[in-house]
Structure formats: structure tokens, C-alpha cells
Amino acid sequence: MTKSFILEKLKAQINPSLSDETRRMAVADRLSKHATGVLPAMPATRIKRVNKFIEKVIASQATIEQISRRNASQAISEYLRSHNLPGEIRMGKDERLKIIRDDAKGLLIKDGRSDGQDLASFSHAEAGVVETGTLALFSGPDNPTTLNFLPENHIVMISENDIVPHYEDVWKVVRSRYGEGQMPRTLNFITGPSRSADIEQTLLLGAHGPIRLHVLLTRD
């Protein structure tokens, strides 16, 4: 069998001074401890970290505005209008997005996955990582992953409470929600709108994914 052929070959090549037993223990140890490595320095206070997150989001060529959760519909409507887009938005059933359903302010809300024709979508991020202004989104029954990629405009809501310093903090969220060694089916780290530099190294936004990424940062 190919599998045993490859594994036997590896065993034969690997440094023989270490016994299989020692190696197995080293691996088990590393997997169970999942120790944190080198972490980039972070501003000491929460406020400064939130500010740095905002800075990094802007540096990634996304846009960001701070709102109160109950004004979400209005913020979305205004954003769509400012880009001459129809007042329609595609979104999943995530509880945290319900607020705009309850008070739609004239927005047309479309449910479920995208058929590829939608111009705008709305999602909720599970975390925002300060070090690079990265949003972490988990897929699930109420959060279709394709909403992050198909529409040209992607609006993502995130609470200030979910802003964390490092990627490693997202793994803590994952483990506490799904269990050790468990993952959401798709975990998307998103840093700015889609782009390509494949034509003469000229940076262009909106390659296959969204042309615009807009973040609604809520205090509540």
C-alpha cells in the first residue's frame, strides 16, 4: 500500500538516534500543549488596541465606521446609497444580525447563500485581530461562507468586545466554542478587499472576491 510505503520510507530516513517511543511522546506533547510561539508586541491598553485595529483595517484598504448596534440598518442603507447600490442585502440567519431584520429601515433583506447575483452581503465576524486588522469569520448553518466572496460589497459587523490582539486569541475562541482539535468547517481570515497584482505588478482591488470591504464596529 502506498501509505505504508511512504511511512516506512520516512521512518528509514529519519534520524535513528531517536526511538519511535520518544518521537511519539514529543508529538503528543506538542499537540496537547499547543504552546504559543513568538507574539508581536501590542499596545498596553484596550483603547489603544482598538485604535490600532482601526488603523490596520484602513491600511488593508477596507473602510470602517463605529456605530451603535441599533443603528446597523441605517449604517448599511447609507453605505449602499453612497456607492449608488440598491437597498438590498444578502445575509445569513445569525442571531447577531437579527437587529437589522427587526428594524429594516426600508432595506430589502435576502436570506441564505448567495446566488452570485447579489451586490452586497452582510456578515458577523467572530473576532477582529489587532496585529493586522484581520477579521475572523466562521461558517455554519447561519453563516454561509460564500457570502464573504461572491458579492462585490461585503459589510461585516464586529463588536469591540471581540477585538483580540493576536491570531492565537482566535484559536482560544475556536477551542472554547468547538472543543479541542475541533474547527468550524470553514474559517476565513479576511484582511481587506480582494486584490491582484498579476498584471504588471499593478495592485488592483476586486479580483474575484469583494471590491469593497466595510467594517461596522459596534461598542455594544
Binding site: 490596520k56 491600511a59 445569513g92 448553518p141 461562507t145 468547517r185 470553514t186 476565513n188 484582511t191 486584490r195
Partner: peptide, 24 residues
């Protein structure tokens, strides 16, 4: 690679779509 701090998309996929998933 490109001198970016982070690429735009870093995607972790674990298994096929799950019960109730609308896509994948």
C-alpha cells in the same frame, strides 16, 4: 512573499460541509 503584513484571505477548511450548512 509580497511584502504584505497579511494576505487578504487565509482560509482553513476542515472536512466537507456539515449538517445544515448552506454552502461548501
Amino acid at each position: 512573499a509580497t511584502g504584505q503584513e497579511m494576505s487578504v484571505y487565509t482560509t482553513l477548511s476542515t472536512g466537507p460541509k456539515r449538517k445544515g450548512d448552506p454552502d461548501g
